[in-house]
Amino acid sequence: MNVIEARHLWKEYGDNVVLENVSLAVKAGEFITVVGTSGCGKTTFLKLLLGVETATRGDLLLDGKPLPDEPNADRGIVFQRYSVFPHLNVLENVMLGAELAASPFWGRTFGKRRRAIREQAVAMLESVGLGTALLKYPSELSGGMQQRLALAQALIKKPRILLLDEPFGALDPGIRADMHQLILSIWRQTGLTIFMITHDLKEGFYLGTRLWVFDKRRHDPQAPNRFGATITYDIPLGHTDRTTLHTIQQSLGANHD
């Protein structure tokens, strides 16, 4: 059973073709990294998965059913920035998702139910290494810690797929390595299907189980928007080799320099 399936997916804004004829199938538990130059449509593809944008033509299916055209709890997301709520402390940020489900009108819980949610949130926060920062506000956290928080916040909803939009793009290299360890251990423990967009080809190459490269197959120099991007490389990773990395680097460079 495919978790995500796309059949001849097109996305156009007027004359501007962004995605052209994307077809793919993703099995549960795959960790897909998505790379490509800026403006290559990888973010548009993420927005389609998220439900913020809808495809012009074609089908995008989640568990065999069309994706709802607005974001919902099936799809967790971590953005590069602004993923967490500045007015809630770390614990409240993670509790929010569970509280919303438990209390449709107030979105708040009290007493026994709150304690249960709190326990769950604390466990989640400890597993991402934020057990000692429960009562801090996001602005008191470093960039890496904020992303840990955003992950914990998304994970508590147990989404079908987890979308990561350049989640570590703003972090220092050392911290980034820590975050790679964290996301890998989360992926191993939960068996989540993960889509991660990155502009760092190396990161994409060594992190996931499958690499997608979004790029344009055809170019019209007179009308750069005439043709859209599609997946030009779809490589299973794990036994990666340098020649492939080099070839992809070359192809991305050659098209856009």
Partner: peptide, 13 residues
């Protein structure tokens, strides 16, 4: 930030 509103929706709000 729009990200916040989208995030809240993915949390089921």
């Amino acid at each position: 930030p729009e990200e916040q509103l989208i995030k809240a929706q993915t949390l089921g709000a």
